[in-house]
Design a protein around this nucleic acid. Structure first.
Lengths: 143, 143
DNA sequence: AGTGAAATGTAGCATGTGCTACACTGTAAT
DNA sequence: ATTACAGTGTAGCACATGCTACATTTCACT
């Protein structure tokens, strides 16, 4: 009895963690690029509040995994794969953020929570959130 | 210009990660205890899908941090501090899960997502979710 | 062209979280 | 009482993510 010993939820949570950093980074890289033209190591360091050394290592892993393309002393660029992940990530981010705002969460809190939540929402939930955001107005007014 | 270089969201996300494992563990310990009487290392290993070695180390950290109380070859018990964290965690878990179900997410997906999301939801959002779950029926019926 | 500051790279360390391999304990069944 | 097996512990490894300290490169400015 009790064959299903491992809960799938946990496996999913652990696996997710491996890609969270990648998602955060490619999203940030794209954002910084669109703001300032190029994205340098120091930009990412400031964004995430870590030292440039940490960024360097992480970017190294991202390059190893095919998300970014960079060479010494040059800015960081996204590969096609990186761009794809970035747009997926910002889509998720925006859906979650809009959803939280539609729910009635304050802007500051919504931004905070979206950052943490976006990596853990399945496509099914995402679609439901999206639908909710775009047609909620009729409800919340009723006392 | 541009004094606010570090986004608070990221700091929050990183800090959270430190306690996620603790939350998962104390929650699991409490659950296993209430199911089987005691919680052993091997129970946690099976639950999380990791080896008993990993559990051992993590339990060691939890003990160091005052969440559990255990001695060699004995089951794992929660300290008062651990119990407190466990009940906080399961409260969050339940609120998030109920909320997702109320939103219309399928049970399987809701369980998955709740596991990932629960660690990243602020108290403000939690209260809103709770309110939503307990008074949503009037909306979703409208086509 | 030369220089100084900012950016980037590298060495070496710590901690968390995972593993395999092997040693030891404890207990249930003979 | 012995034994066999499940549970637990430990040694030693790998990798991710963080740091400080120091070296190197780039670039703007004179």
């Amino acid at each position: 009895m009790s064959r299903k010993v491992v809960k799938n939820e946990y496996i999913r949570t652990r696996r997710d963690h491996a890609t969270e950093v990648a998602e955060d980074y490619v999203e940030a890289i794209e954002e910084i690029q669109s703001e300032t033209g190029t994205c340098r190591v120091v930009d990412l360091a400031r964004r995430f509040g870590v030292t440039h050394v940490t960024v360097n290592k992480t970017v190294g892993r991202l390059q190893r995994d095919g998300f970014v393309d960079t060479e010494p002393y040059a800015p960081v660029a996204l590969t096609r794969k990186g761009k794809k992940l970035a747009s997926q990530s910002s889509r998720r981010h925006e859906i979650v953020l809009s959803f939280l705002l539609a729910l009635g969460v304050s802007e500051e809190t919504a931004k905070m929570d979206a950052e943490g939540i976006e990596h853990h929402v399945s496509e099914e939930t995402l679609l439901i959130m999206q639908a909710f955001s775009s047609q909620d107005a009729g409800c919340s007014t009723a006392k």
